[in-house]
Design a protein around this nucleic acid. Sequence first.
DNA 1: AGTTAAATACGAATGTAATCGTATCTTGTG
DNA 2: CACAAGATACGATTACATTCGTATTTAACT
Lengths: 126, 126
Amino acid sequence: MARDNTNIKPTEAELTLLNVLWKVGPATVRQVHDVVSKTQKTGYTTVLKILQIMHEKTLVIRDESNRAHVYAPSNSETFTQSSLLKDLATKAFGGSTSKLVMRALDESTSKEEIADIRQLLNELEK
Amino acid sequence: MARDNTNIKPTEAELTLLNVLWKVGPATVRQVHDVVSKTQKTGYTTVLKILQIMHEKTLVIRDESNRAHVYAPSNSETFTQSSLLKDLATKAFGGSTSKLVMRALDESTSKEEIADIRQLLNELEK
DNA sequence: AGTTAAATACGAATGTAATCGTATCTTGTG
DNA sequence: CACAAGATACGATTACATTCGTATTTAACT
């Protein structure tokens, strides 16, 4: 039996690198490091190591056909976001997604955001 | 200057214990352990130790006037939920709460939940 | 083929979270 | 007042995440 890799929760450092890969697409260690080093003081080999660990966990796939391996996320950003939300709903909202949603909304929510959410609710009801 | 304790993110084990305290109210180590041991195989001294650490971090307050100390959450469930959501929005949704909300909603959302959310949106717009 | 630049692989060190065994303390009760 | 039950305190261990230095490998270019 193959291991089920679709439910692994990325750690914080892993999520940082996934965000880069989702944004820029498949990338080498150097490319990923260039991006993250703009906002963090993270060493090159640290990024390399974390990507290697993510590969072991199958959080990313990698293309080894060139000398510089090219990494890409195994799961979409959307899928991962949903997983993280489900996890948080379970751990902090008694499993209730609607409670989570209602807690997320407050006076800081703009009119435009409210309109967007309303539209989504309309579509969901169809 | 007093340390700002309001923005500390509880760990997973800590959140489990906070959930008990929010549900049953101020409680002793034994009471908390009785609850968590129904669903987990966690030792008594483990619960004790974590509550002690939470007290150091000021995630909980404790009443030491009796032999069995009584622990209570420092922050409300609502406040903590909001903090956790804000953290997740930052790390996985580019800081956008509305994106988070829209991702949380899907075909599994019931009619009743949709109605509840609509009502909240109406109130927010006032 | 040798040199070198740049990549990966490896392993150790550090930090934090979680677990629990054992020691110590407290207090009600015989 | 001694003692037993049950509580806290403490320290060690384990597990996992993070970091990075150093060794090794690769391949392009003289």
